[in-house]
C-alpha cells in the first residue's frame, strides 16, 4: 500500500514542491548572476599574465566544474532507478543527459576560446579539454541509447546501466588523459584554497559565479524534469486537471 502510494505519488509530489521552489530559485539566480557578472566584468583587476582575458575564467570554470558533476548525478539517479525502480529518478536521469551535454559543449567552446590566447591555438590536446571531449561523447552515447530504445522502461534501465559504467569510467579516462599529457602545464592555476596564490578579489567573484551557475543548473534540471513528469503522467487525473486549470498558454 505504501509502496504503491510512493510510486504513484512521488512525481506529482515533486511537481508540486518544485512549483514552490522555482520562484525562489529564479530570484536567487538573478541576484547571484547579476552580482557575479557585474563583479567579473567590471571590478576584477587585470591579471598580470592574462590581462583582461581573466574574465573568461568566470564563465569557463563554473560551467566546466558543473559539467563534471553531471555524470555522477546521472549515475546516482540511474542506481536509484535500478534498485528502487523510482520513476522520478529516471525522469531526472533523462533530463540531466541533455543538460550535461550542453554544459560540456559550452565548457569545450569557452575552453577553446580561452586556449586561443593561452596556447595561441583554438584547440590543443590539453588533458582537461580532451577529457571533456570524451565526456561529451559519453553524454551523446547516453542520449542516443535513450532515443533508440522504444520501450520507456527498458530505455530507463539501459541508460541507468550505461550511466553507471560511464561514471566509473570518467575518472579512469580523466586520469589516463592527464597521464598521457603530462607535458602540458595545468590549464588554470585556479584554486578556492584560501592560501592559494590567487588573491580574494579573484576567487570570491568566481565563487559567486559558480553558485549562480549551480542555481541555473538546478532550474534547468527542474524545468526539464517537470516537462518529463507531465509528458509521462499525461493520462493521470492530476495532470488533466492541471491542463484544464491552465488558462493562458
Amino acid at each position: 500500500m505504501w509502496l504503491w502510494f510512493a510510486k504513484l505519488g512521488s512525481p506529482r509530489w515533486f511537481y508540486e514542491l518544485s512549483d514552490k521552489w522555482l520562484p525562489w530559485l529564479y530570484v536567487s539566480m538573478l541576484i547571484l548572476m547579476s552580482v557575479g557578472l557585474f563583479w567579473a566584468l567590471l571590478i576584477v583587476p587585470e591579471d598580470y599574465q592574462q590581462g583582461q582575458t581573466i574574465r573568461i575564467m568566470y564563465i569557463h570554470v563554473p560551467v566546466a566544474s558543473i559539467s563534471l558533476a553531471c555524470f555522477p548525478l546521472m549515475a546516482v539517479a540511474g542506481t536509484i532507478t535500478l534498485v528502487w525502480k523510482m520513476k522520478l529518478a529516471d525522469m531526472v536521469a533523462q533530463s540531466v543527459a541533455p543538460i550535461g551535454a550542453w554544459f560540456t559543449g559550452l565548457a569545450l567552446a569557452t575552453g577553446a576560446i580561452w586556449g586561443d590566447q593561452i596556447w595561441g591555438t583554438w584547440w590543443a590536446w590539453d588533458a582537461r579539454l580532451t577529457s571533456l571531449l570524451i565526456q561529451f561523447f559519453l553524454f551523446i552515447g547516453v542520449i542516443a541509447l535513450r532515443s533508440a530504445i522504444d520501450s520507456p522502461d527498458a530505455a530507463a534501465k539501459a541508460c541507468a546501466v550505461l550511466a553507471i559504467v560511464g561514471a566509473i569510467n570518467v575518472p579512469i579516462i580523466k586520469y589516463s588523459v592527464e597521464w598521457w599529457n603530462t607535458l602540458h602545464q595545468p590549464a588554470s592555476n585556479f584554486s578556492i584554497d584560501p592560501v592559494a596564490p590567487n588573491p580574494p578579489e579573484v576567487w570570491v567573484p568566481l565563487l559567486v559565479m559558480i553558485s549562480a551557475v549551480y542555481v541555473f543548473f538546478a532550474i534547468a534540471l527542474i524545468l526539464r524534469t517537470r516537462n518529463e513528469i507531465l509528458q509521462r503522467e499525461r493520462r493521470s487525473q492530476w495532470v488533466i486537471d492541471l491542463v484544464t486549470r491552465e488558462k493562458n498558454v
Binding site: L37, R55, I56, I59, W102, I113, F216
Partner: peptide, 17 residues
C-alpha cells in the same frame, strides 16, 4: 574572445530556460 565567451553563455542560459 571575451565577448564571444559571454555571448555564448547568454545564448546557453536563455536556450536552456
Amino acid at each position: 574572445h571575451i565577448w564571444a565567451v559571454y555571448l555564448l553563455f547568454a545564448v546557453f542560459i536563455s536556450y536552456n530556460l
